[in-house]
Design a protein around this nucleic acid. Sequence first.
DNA 1: TCTGGGGTCCTAGGACCC
DNA 2: TCTGGGGTCCTAGGACCC
Length: 423
Amino acid sequence: MYALVDCNSFYVSCERVFDPGLRGVPVVVLSNNDGCVVARSAEAKACGIGMGAPIFKMKEAVKRYGVRVFSSNYTLYGDMSARVMNVLGRFSPGVEVYSIDEAFLDLSGMEGLKEYGYRIREVVGLELGLPVCVGVGRTKTLAKVANRIAKRHGRLRGVCVIDTAEKERRALEMTPVDGVWGIGGRLSKKLGRQGVRTALEFSEMPSAWVRKHMSVVGLRTQRELAGEACLSLELVRPRKKSVCVSRSFGSDIEGLGKLKEALSAFVSMCGAKVREEGCCASTLTVLLMTNRFRTDIPHCSDQLTVPLPVPSDSDLELAGYAMRAAERIHREGVRYKKAGVIAGGLVPKNEVTGDLFDKVDRERHAALSLATDRLNGKFGAGTVKLGSQGPGRGWSHRQERLSRRFSTRWEELVEVGGGRNLP
DNA sequence: TCTGGGGTCCTAGGACCC
DNA sequence: TCTGGGGTCCTAGGACCC
């Protein structure tokens, strides 16, 4: 059996741990750039604030209900996530960290699963102050179904165990097909046209149809719902195949010069990620996009992937390729809203095949990267940067309602008895 | 005025190879 | 007249996840 442990409204719950005044009131956390709502407390849901809603469209509800609004504080959430995973590790020898707020646990051979689920909830609650729900099933996909039910039905008190054929059938019956892990908006629409509404109906579809219209991925989902485990726990995080840095700009950017400054900044953040993976990139992709929500200007979304002659993890070298790619795809007079770089084809640094005619002095580049990473690590990101980044941050994004890094910075700790905790 | 960011996998089609 | 078959690699696009 598998358990899926998932934190409730994770980002909101993290904020609440350090500011009890947020309990019982509507709270939302915004995406990067303070754009959309990515986490909502139950109270905020009740105020009609939708998942993914642009916050500027929610102004009225925010004002009327006194919704507390926060920027994403990834330093805080990342640290709290690590603590949760640490606790979960005590409950099973097999834990797959699936996302920042979810983990699958291997509970095979165990008895008393419901009580165990309650125990997990209790311990995470006591030690970290975070509410979680636990779903248990024969496969990962069924555990997901169970978790969804645990979240929605208060009388279950956060734990749902699907351990008989009858319970499986009932669970699938009460789960809409778009609530199934692996079936998103497009596929559920397609299924809807076939008259399929629930997970149960999906599980009863002819597998030939599923294979043809939903590929092997859909077929796997169907089998998982039937109790056939097709997905196993991934106990070690697989090496990343690509890393990406992309941002929307505070305001549109026109002109190659400014665009290059932004891309230089992105490429050096991306290079840092590549080095963190202990890898080198074999390809570099640059993407440029206009605002897809505007109807008054023509949309464009261009990207170019350039293969590197020798895989590299040097900001300097990657930036060179990014600049040339940008020159090739940039269109004069277009106002860009978003840009990004992707370092692809990552290979471990010690497996890189060199080039006999390589002109790059890789030792010097490596020394430079090491020095800049150390300086930026010690004195803060951006202390040392590429000249091509320019002086400004014209691409800079909004982050106006950021809470403190309560759990990772001495100078930002909560003070008890002081008056300094609330901004 | 203001609409996120970072990943994965699969498929189809083209280029190329022997 | 008759013009193969089997494979790899790459990329773009589409779907999904959180």
